[in-house]
Simulated scan of single mutants.
Amino acid sequence: MTDGTPLTDARPRALRLLPTGRSRRARYTAILFVLPAFTAYAVFVLAPLIMSLYYSTLRWDGIGKARFTGLANYVTVLTDPDLLSIIGNAFELVLYFTVIPVLLGLAVASAIRGHMAGTFGTLTRTVLFLPQVIPLVAAGIAWSWMFASTGLVNQMLTAVGLADWTRGWLGDFDFALPAVGIIGAWVLLGLCTMLLVTGITKIDPSLYEAARLDGARPWHEFRYVTLPGLRQEIGVCVTVTVISALASFDIVYIATGGGPGITTMVPGLEIYRLAFAHRQVGLASALAIVLMVLVLIAITPVQWYAREKK
């Protein structure tokens, strides 16, 4: 048009919505880039998940003929007292694997906030992160020696006059699970501290200055400046540590093997035992699916909390 009216596409709307040659090429290019990653994800995640769902409906020893049982394996998982106790052990480990590392990580990050650029901050971060780079098998073996009847823990208790408290910690029905929890807390403390220290550097220093000018004490700075500023980092720490607690395997396998009795048995180790020692592949698969659902239920509120508020 020449009278000032903007030009419009006279084609029908359905035709305008059809992809052009350039947009089709861009879409195909994007698909080609995504295809390798999606293929790997499908082969190593989706396919095993679908197979586990299928196996969980069978009564099968892994070799002979399988028999379809429907939801019977899930009923067993949700009603068997031993299996429920094993799931409870995993949730109890959350207290050690999550609460202790996150709280101590917050305390350490707040304490070294003003010294992170110096030698003290560098040394502190290095020492705290060291357990994260040690193989979990090695950590489990080392702590097994320390918790032994003649280990370092009992030697230290004897040295300070608490010989009555000495015991074989990993073989004690009351203290074995807390001892395993302490190992996990020690391993995860460095990761949580590094994430929180990194997150604290993103907080604008002027917020702390403004808080101090308003008469805020250190506790108020921590509550009203540090905690809100670390919302996403805390969410990541809690997510990682909760998954580590609920899906724990290697530390428990090395330190106690699930004993004494089933006091330290966790779902990950029980799945391995059911599938390969007792050849109950269907029950093991059902427990694995239940564990996956519990992990999703546990971390979904955390992810919701960690979302950045608009």
Results as ranks from 00 to 15, higher is better:
residue 91 F to H: 03
residue 91 F to S: 01
residue 92 E to M: 10
residue 92 E to C: 02
residue 93 L to K: 07
residue 94 V to E: 04
residue 95 L to F: 13
residue 96 Y to G: 00
residue 96 Y to S: 00
residue 96 Y to W: 15
residue 97 F to G: 00
residue 98 T to P: 03
residue 98 T to C: 09
residue 99 V to L: 15
residue 99 V to T: 14
residue 100 I to N: 06
residue 100 I to Y: 13
residue 100 I to R: 09
residue 101 P to H: 07
residue 101 P to E: 02
residue 101 P to Y: 06
residue 102 V to N: 04
residue 103 L to Q: 03
residue 103 L to I: 14
residue 105 G to S: 05
residue 106 L to H: 07
residue 106 L to M: 10
residue 107 A to K: 02
residue 107 A to T: 10
residue 108 V to I: 15
residue 109 A to T: 06
residue 110 S to D: 09
residue 110 S to G: 12
residue 110 S to E: 09
residue 111 A to H: 10
residue 111 A to V: 11
residue 111 A to L: 15
residue 112 I to T: 06
residue 113 R to M: 10
residue 114 G to W: 12
residue 114 G to C: 01
residue 115 H to K: 11
residue 116 M to L: 15
residue 116 M to I: 10
residue 119 T to G: 12
residue 120 F to E: 03
residue 120 F to K: 04
residue 120 F to H: 07
residue 121 G to L: 10
residue 122 T to Q: 13
residue 122 T to P: 00
residue 122 T to Y: 12
residue 123 L to F: 14
residue 123 L to R: 12
residue 124 T to Q: 03
residue 125 R to F: 09
residue 125 R to L: 12
residue 125 R to E: 12
residue 126 T to D: 02
residue 126 T to V: 11
residue 128 L to V: 13
residue 129 F to E: 00
residue 129 F to T: 00
residue 129 F to K: 01
residue 130 L to V: 13
residue 130 L to G: 02
residue 131 P to M: 04
residue 131 P to K: 04
residue 132 Q to G: 01
residue 132 Q to D: 01
residue 133 V to W: 12
residue 134 I to D: 04
residue 134 I to K: 10
residue 135 P to V: 08
residue 135 P to A: 10
residue 135 P to Q: 08
residue 137 V to I: 14
residue 137 V to S: 09
residue 138 A to V: 15
residue 139 A to G: 07
residue 140 G to P: 02
residue 140 G to A: 07
residue 140 G to D: 03
residue 140 G to L: 08
residue 141 I to V: 15
residue 141 I to R: 09
residue 141 I to Q: 11
residue 142 A to C: 06
residue 142 A to R: 03
residue 142 A to M: 14
residue 143 W to N: 01
residue 143 W to E: 01
residue 143 W to M: 08
residue 144 S to M: 07
residue 145 W to F: 14
residue 146 M to F: 14
residue 146 M to H: 09
residue 148 A to W: 11
residue 149 S to L: 11
residue 149 S to N: 11
residue 150 T to R: 13
residue 150 T to Y: 14
residue 151 G to S: 08
